[in-house]
Amino acid sequence: MIRALRAVKWLLIAVAVVVALFPFYWMLRTALAPADDVFFDGISLVPTSIDFANFARAWDKAQLGDAIVTGVIMTGSILVLQLITCIPAAYVLAKVRIRGVGIALAIVIGCLLVPVQVTLIPTFIGINVAGLGDSLPGLILPSMTSAFGIFLLRQQMMSIPDSLMEAARTDGLGHVRTLTNVVIPMAGPGIAAFSVFSVFTHWNDYMWPLLIARSPDLATPPLALAIFQQGDIGFDYSALAAGAAIVTAPVVILFLVAQRRFVQGMSGAEIPG
């Protein structure tokens, strides 16, 4: 009985792992196959031969080099801005008792519920009025802060024991040094988790760049991929798959590297409390 249950459990896990990984595998299979081996009759899990030229073609035609540079600058700037804006705000919302904090918190939480549809068009027009359409600042600024980030970091900072804050106060630390010397180190896992989260949200973002980026050299990786796919050469499926793999790889690698911290940060497990 127990043995049977175990077998079922492992079977389920195996199925889940295969389903989770298969699209990635299929992307690589298509990316490595010669161009005429994308659609075929019957089931063929491995390509007839390996053709790395697809990657070169994708890199050239989808201008992925430029796209990756744009993507890195955009994602990096957004991350820095979000950390600068979110960390101090989260600290105040979590640990400072002054008038108005309750209202500020209510606003942050309310913002979490506003779907992107509501702000999309006015923000688009506003960015254009400000002359930032088709520019890096136009891609970056609307994401300068994150209500989600403030909220997540606040929850992390809530679990920092008040005795520590008290100690900082008695030591004569002002808010700035309390933040840099006590709170940030303690909230490290949460900050790391949010950073990883922010990076893959914005690296993968498609809709906003689709609206804002118009010059070919401003296309972000997903946008470059979509343009390649919808263009006259979009039938070149093996190159498209190679492009998809190139666009996917950085976040997957980042995730593999940061995975342990990410999960811990999401759970707050490292914060003593």
Binding site: N128, G133, A213, R214, S215, P216
Partner: peptide, 15 residues
């Protein structure tokens, strides 16, 4: 412009 459809181009110019 990095656009692939005339509708998209129209949207850009209108904006």
């Amino acid at each position: 412009q990095s656009t692939t459809s005339y509708d998209d181009l129209t949207k850009t110019i209108v904006a």
